[in-house]
Design a protein around this nucleic acid. Structure first.
Lengths: 197, 197
DNA sequence: CACCCTGCCTACCGGGCGCTCGGTAGGGTA
DNA sequence: TACCCTACCGAGCGCCCGGTAGGCAGGGTG
């Protein structure tokens, strides 16, 4: 979804633009409201050709979902495990990544229910793994006395997930704050609020 | 969407069940994935009869959206304006109401993009009015020195909205916390985090 | 040269969708 | 009796959807 490593401002191959264009369309119109005809047209190809690149529409959506989670996971896993300010780093990494790929995340988060049972299950499993990762960090900080213990790790983590997930539905880059500023402020509020009194 | 005031456990009129059943279906399957045939079947009537009660599918969705916001607004407006703990009360009222009408809120929040431009605009206007109400409370508490001033009222309010809105996507009544407990804990964390240092 | 692969095309299909038409049964009213 | 209104139904229409069949041009490889 970013520029290819070699070419400068080349016309960009169809296959490379596919996920980007799909995320953009799904975000703007919703998955169900986006037709394969529109998707093909936006790519500058015919509908039958689209099926040369994807196996079917639902497959494309599932791929998008996994890609979204893969990127978040990669961001968070690259944080030093021993970092005492790990939670703050997670806020910043997650939010800047989510805002950078805003179309992708907004599209997949709201289209998950359009997947069939097996696909939805697979994506849900990935999401749960990501959330477990966050919860373990929260739990560790609670054990270390850095976070209050009178709220369960589950609820504390869910508060954090709320702050992270809903943001992409209203955030506009041309608004008041950059993603970094916003992430720092949310981390400020959350960490101060979750500190033992 | 609740029991009628007079009848006890009567069979309940079709018209009275309509919004409830629609919210339930839209929540479980998504708006686009729910067909008018299913909706009629769930109501125990034929599809043609459904159109005796509604003018069209999109109209029904818009009605649901306005109803959701109407309920939230009524809850929050009934809070004493002079209450110094008004923000905490908002957390509790909003979350308990949202959890009580979980189908309604989850369905409408994720189906807004399925509305046509004019309808979406109308719903968005209502949402903005609700959020403006919250922001004014936040701003007042900032002026009174009860909330930190180094984070803008907009960002503070958005943090609050994140905490309130995303909850209905994961909350399960049979989980660890009741809506009241959860609301109190979220209010604890948010208010402690938003207090001036 | 013959071969196959990739990327693209035109043309089409079956099916499910939202919605409508033209009615019927039954209670209320004058 | 004559009328109207509410709630319901069977049948079906036209549209547009996701997906497919089959073919063509061009470049690489033996």
């Amino acid at each position: 979804m970013s520029a290819s490593p070699e070419s400068a401002a080349a016309p960009a191959k169809t296959a490379d633009r596919l996920l980007d264009v799909a995320a953009d369309l799904f975000r703007r119109k919703g998955y169900a409201q986006t037709t394969t005809r529109e998707l093909a047209e936006e790519l500058g190809i015919k509908k039958a050709t689209l099926y040369h690149h994807i196996s079917n529409k639902e497959d494309l959506l599932e791929a998008l979902c996994h890609e979204a989670l893969r990127r978040l996971t990669a961001e968070v896993e690259s944080i030093e495990a021993a970092d005492p300010d790990r939670l703050r780093a997670i806020f910043v990494r997650h939010l800047t990544s989510a805002v950078r790929d805003q179309n992708l995340h907004a599209a997949t988060l709201s289209a998950i229910d359009s997947l069939g049972p097996e696909r939805r299950e697979r994506v849900a499993t990935s999401r749960k793994a990501y959330e477990r990762m966050l919860r373990e960090v929260v739990r560790a900080d609670q054990k270390a006395g850095r976070l209050r213990g009178d709220v369960s790790a589950e609820n504390l983590t869910h508060a954090m997930i709320n702050l992270l997930n809903w943001t992409i539905y209203w955030y506009r880059p041309d608004g008041g704050s950059s993603a970094e500023e916003l992430a720092e402020q949310f981390a400020d509020v959350f960490l101060q609020g979750a500190t033992p009194r």
